[in-house]
């Protein structure tokens, strides 16, 4: 019992996730800067930003709903943490699991997005209102391709449980390479989920200041930022667990390093995407997700169904 609590609270639970999210943010910003031929921040910058924001004055707009306004960042943080507890990291089992936890994790990762939208809604500011509506519009455009992409590999494994999917692909040799198309779709939609260029429409600085977060200051904004960074790690871990199911040997250190490399690689891919594109418009994002991403994800599902019917049987 105490061991489980320690696992949840310290390693590989909450504390580990927070530390990893800071490192992830640093890596993302540094690579982004390097690709733009800049210096980038020093290693302690994410921590410094977090502490600075915590120390800042908390201002809540007069018209905002105080209770919900304060509660939303914590809801966002906790839902990401819960999702993270169910994702297997360097072992085939996660801290907590049940049959069908992939679906559960996907839904837990949707909750932060909803809180961003609600945050904008309850701020009662025009910019935040527009941002809130854009968050929802964006959610509707990327969520379906993301679900289809993540669930495509599970068709082959005939299971919605992380452990069984990983076991299946480990036994199947290099069968996981089949899911490459879905992996690409998942990376692109993850970019949308994390609201980064080219899908940073809800936060488009030059249009609606900071979108839903316009009225958020100080500690509350710090928790939203933390939630966003943890979401990056959780999303990367999810994609790593489903699409890169290898490196689950018997040595802990070895497995741990492979996990870190996987997450770093995915964050690197996200950083590259955010470097080389311009921001899309809402309508362009919608048509891109539904015209291109969803059919591509469907193709993957089709391939997997054919493989399952023709080869595996």
């Amino acid at each position: 019992m105490i061991l489980l609590l320690l696992k949840i609270l310290v390693f590989p639970g909450i504390l580990f996730l927070v530390v990893l999210s800071m490192i992830g943010e640093y890596f993302d910003r540094k690579v982004y800067a390097k690709m733009q031929n800049r210096m980038g921040p020093p290693w302690f910058q994410p921590v410094a930003d977090f502490i600075k924001l915590l120390a800042k004055e908390l201002i809540i707009p007069k018209n905002a709903d105080r209770k919900i306004f304060k509660a939303l960042p914590l809801v966002a943080c906790s839902s990401v943490i819960i999702a993270y507890l169910y994702i297997p990291l360097w072992r085939k089992e996660s801290i907590m699991s049940f049959n069908g936890d992939i679906i559960f994790v996907l839904y837990m990762l949707t909750i932060p997005t909803l809180t961003y939208s609600l945050a904008g809604w309850y701020s009662r500011s025009q910019y935040a209102l527009i941002g809130s509506m854009r968050v929802l519009t964006q959610l509707f455009s990327y969520e379906v391709p993301l679900f289809m992409a993540v669930l495509a590999p599970t068709i082959l494994a005939s299971s919605w449980s992380f452990t069984e999917v990983i076991n299946f692909y480990n036994a199947g040799g290099s069968l996981w390479l089949v899911n490459f198309i879905a992996f690409a779709v998942a990376i692109v939609t993850l970019q949308g989920k994390l609201e980064k260029v080219p899908f940073d429409i809800p936060e488009a600085e030059t249009e609606i200041v900071a979108g839903s977060f316009t009225e958020y200051t100080g500690p509350l904004f710090a928790y939203f930022r933390l939630a966003m960074n943890m979401q990056t790690i959780a999303g990367a871990s999810l994609v790593a667990a489903v699409f890169l199911p290898f490196g689950y040997g018997s040595f802990f250190i070895f497995n741990f390093i492979i996990y870190i490399i996987k997450v770093t690689f995915i964050i690197f891919l996200l950083a590259v995407i955010r470097t080389i594109f311009a921001r899309l418009r809402t309508d362009q994002m919608l048509s891109f997700c539904w015209k291109y991403l969803a059919p591509i994800a469907l193709v993957q599902i089709l391939i997997n169904v054919i493989i399952k019917a023709a080869v595996l049987k």
Binding site: V31, K34, N37, G40, V272, T275, I276
Partner: peptide, 18 residues
């Protein structure tokens, strides 16, 4: 799509202009 990819990747290994 991604016209600037080559340039950005090569910048990774360049000295920053700062």
């Amino acid at each position: 799509l991604g016209k600037m990819l080559a340039e950005t990747i090569s910048s990774l290994f360049k000295k920053p202009a700062t």
